[in-house]
Design a protein around this nucleic acid. Structure first.
Ligand SMILES: NC(=O)c1ccc[n+]([C@@H]2O[C@H](COP(=O)([O-])OP(=O)(O)OC[C@H]3O[C@@H](n4cnc5c(N)ncnc54)[C@H](O)[C@@H]3O)[C@@H](O)[C@H]2O)c1
Ligand SMILES: NC(=O)c1ccc[n+]([C@@H]2O[C@H](COP(=O)([O-])OP(=O)(O)OC[C@H]3O[C@@H](n4cnc5c(N)ncnc54)[C@H](O)[C@@H]3O)[C@@H](O)[C@H]2O)c1
Lengths: 231, 231
DNA sequence: GTATAATTGTGAATTCTTGAACAAATTATA
DNA sequence: TATAATTTGTTCAAGAATTCACAATTATAC
């Protein structure tokens, strides 16, 4: 029904609106949100439409009820838990940001095969041994699993997660894991992303230099055109 | 000309092919790559077509020259450098993976406003003070900038990066930065991604439970249909 | 009040991406 | 050598996402 992209944008709208609200703003118009995100106003209106919330013509959207609508749409009625597998460099960074009991959505448990990490607490989150996976997922009623391990065992660990009741996976490993169709997987492949940025950076630079060249040789171009026209 | 998605997939193909090559495999067919990535063979063929490389009907692609074609297409002729701004939790994780002199594409310098980090070396990468940005970017001829700082100053730092010659930005901050059209920006918004996974995880679970319910009540459904039909 | 200006909600058009299908090409095999 | 079997390259259709454009609606100015 609702697309992934819409859900992502709703999440962005919310963050901006929360900020604007603490700054005292009470209403917002589609083109303001659009400008902040560098998208088109029609996109914003279309997304908000899907919430069932209606704005006021010639006036915009009331921020407070709009935020409520977004929360109503995006959030679980109950706080939602996630577990992290792999407390390495990346896993630690994720814990620093997403561990925390008070939040609506948070990492509530971590796992690692490294015995030196098991038993420790990182950013307020306990690290368990791998064989506790099923048990802890059940106890915390987690629905999201985050994979921050190398690709090798990602598939088998993913399978365990799914068997334990996880239905959404955020996969940072380079392996494209396979899941049954009732499990949602998001692949965040930072290496591929890095390469992509590098690729287009180079392209942009070439393009910019070409443009610059054209600008510098503009008069010459004109002369050339004149010659053509004259023929 | 070539789409972002295609570039991303080419990067994935390369990683898989490199692995397969060390395992001794010499040729590969579109459906094999497709199965590994859970996409359709036609997509693979289409992507490879754009490289200008041709496979052999009834035989597939030769891995070695295909890899060369991909490298030729994706990589800069010269090693390409990136700089990182923000050596916090996430920045450190990125350094752990992408710092390294020997690579074709790597983070060659880091920056932080925190004086306690400046001067230190993290994973082989030196951390410089912010006022060295322009100088170091020029020295390293970097084209990619990675932002791993809070949103507040992201825009102004981004502007400085662009002024210094950066034409590709990988932005991990929640702020959607604005750049001129000859600069490429990729936003990696981990909070929004996390929320998205959580959203669809919940949905999948509901869906699965509905399906299960339907399965269990299949006979009842049939009976109900019979009643309808009879009317 | 009425007119004016501005903004929403949304059908239609457009653009971008993926998928199905098949002729052409090539290998493997009989 | 001829035939069958298979995979590629590519066209065309389908699908998804975005953008346009405008009627409907509301606030504001006069
Ligand atoms: N850090 C980055 O910036 C970055 C960039 C690109 C890709 N990645 C990918 O993200 C993943 C994690 O990266 P990282 O830098 O944190 O790696 P890391 O090596 O620092 O950490 C991996 C952690 O996972 C644990 N682990 C390994 N195998 C395990 C298993 N079978 N079961 C449980 N725990 C296991 C290890 O003990 C370690 O703590 C890797 O797949 C990596 O390729 C990371
Ligand atoms: N770590 C995660 O998993 C995660 C998740 C979601 C979002 N993010 C985002 O990624 C960014 C970085 O996250 P983090 O966890 O590494 O944060 P962090 O607080 O651990 O690190 C931020 C680093 O940036 C430096 N910094 C801050 N302002 C700066 C400035 N103006 N100039 C130079 N350096 C500056 C700080 O000194 C610090 O070293 C943040 O925007 C955060 O919202 C991170």
């Amino acid at each position: 029904m609702v697309s992934e992209k819409t859900v992502e944008r709703l999440s962005l709208y919310r963050r901006i609106l929360q900020q604007l609200r603490v700054e005292g703003k009470e209403t917002i118009m589609s083109h303001e949100l659009a400008n902040l995100l560098h998208i088109k106003p029609a996109q914003v209106r279309r997304d908000i439409m899907q919430l069932g919330y209606s704005g006021i013509p010639n006036s915009g959207y009331k921020i407070r009820p709009l935020l409520e609508s977004i929360a109503n749409f995006l959030d679980s009625p109950l706080p939602q838990s996630a577990v992290l597998v792999g407390v390495g460099h990346l896993g630690l960074a994720l814990l620093a940001n997403f561990a925390g009991r008070w939040r609506q959505l948070a990492i509530r448990a971590a796992f690692d095969k490294d015995p030196s990490k098991v038993g420790q607490t990182f950013h307020g989150c306990r690290c368990y041994p791998m064989y506790d996976l099923q048990k802890v997922i059940a106890e915390t009623k987690s629905v999201v699993g985050i994979l921050a391990i190398p690709g090798e065992n990602a598939q088998s660990i993913c399978d365990t997660l799914v068997q334990s009741g996880i239905s959404g996976i955020l996969n940072f490993s380079p392996l494209r894991i396979k899941v049954s169709e009732n499990v949602f997987v998001e692949h965040v492949d930072l290496s591929a992303t890095f390469e992509k940025v590098s690729f287009f950076a180079r392209r942009m630079k070439h393009y910019a230099e070409e443009e610059k060249w054209k600008m510098e040789n503009e008069t010459t171009d004109d002369e050339y055109e004149t010659i053509i026209t004259k023929q």
